[in-house]
Design a protein around this nucleic acid. Sequence first.
DNA 1: ACTTTATGGTCTACAATTTAGACTATGTCT
DNA 2: AGACATAGTCTAAATTGTAGACCATAAAGT
Lengths: 165, 165
Amino acid sequence: MSSAISAVERFSRYQSDDAQSEGSAHCPVRDVLDRIGDKWSILMIMTLATRPQRFSELHRAVRGISKRMLTQTLRDLERDGLITRHVFPTKPPSVEYGLSALGQSLLEPMAALIDWADHRYSDIHDARARFDSAPCDAARHETDVHRSAMNIATSRKAATRRARQ
Amino acid sequence: MSSAISAVERFSRYQSDDAQSEGSAHCPVRDVLDRIGDKWSILMIMTLATRPQRFSELHRAVRGISKRMLTQTLRDLERDGLITRHVFPTKPPSVEYGLSALGQSLLEPMAALIDWADHRYSDIHDARARFDSAPCDAARHETDVHRSAMNIATSRKAATRRARQ
DNA sequence: ACTTTATGGTCTACAATTTAGACTATGTCT
DNA sequence: AGACATAGTCTAAATTGTAGACCATAAAGT
């Protein structure tokens, strides 16, 4: 736990540095997080972790991704040195993607996250159900200011769409 | 390292289960990852890790987020039981957000990721520079099929915009 | 011989998400 | 009175992402 605290402190130091300089001096942590926190990157890395795969294989494996995003995600990960790209001069040329050493090294911390997701999933699931079936804004609105429908609605839209597929 | 391997295996099992059932039976891991992997959630949790904060404080702390996204992210995290929301009936009512126990528990695995980002940042940075100044598609194109500008361009657009702020 | 299939992408049109910023209501400070 | 702060919400505009047609080539199926 002490390590968690120190990481938080380190992060918060970066954050405030960032806030002061206003410029492009940015938190390496945020920089990296922005990259791997973009919906497809983690999925991609985890998928490539089992074995190197080709473009079309990946397209089939990571369901829901468009070719465009697949291309872009792969390109970005390659740029950051997390994955490698190998072109085989077969007749319809085939391209194999795989994790680089750097990419491999990301697996360890990623595993911690996966474990957490796996262990705590039921808690999250329960919390979600509780929230959704709540007597609603009872607690939310002591002060009844202008109430309205709000089309944010806990982005259940997105959740639904995700489930629909 | 063995733990990393087992996590990868667990993930890949979920993935293939998912591929078969076609339906909405989804990988808890992906479900959770989709939530915390959405650009603002991790930032939010890390920011709240230092201390509970109010809406406007968060808006100032997490630079670049719009109020709309702030509201939505907070709502989603609350729904998932990761953060708590407390309304104080002061006259312009103030609302304080903080990490729940579940949210706290996420700090540990998150710290592993932060550490990784911190240690490997220079590697990534170097890889990026190398890639950007590369003799380009030398290795990329043995087979010179239809070449074109491609407006994906490693999404340097986004990178630039991010830096510009 | 002709059609289908597969390869790795790219491109376009459209759909979804996200941002910027105006606006709300009420109370304190100047 | 006017400015500022509180927590959001709403709208319009910009950005991002998806679906799917398309490219050239070759092998396999019929």
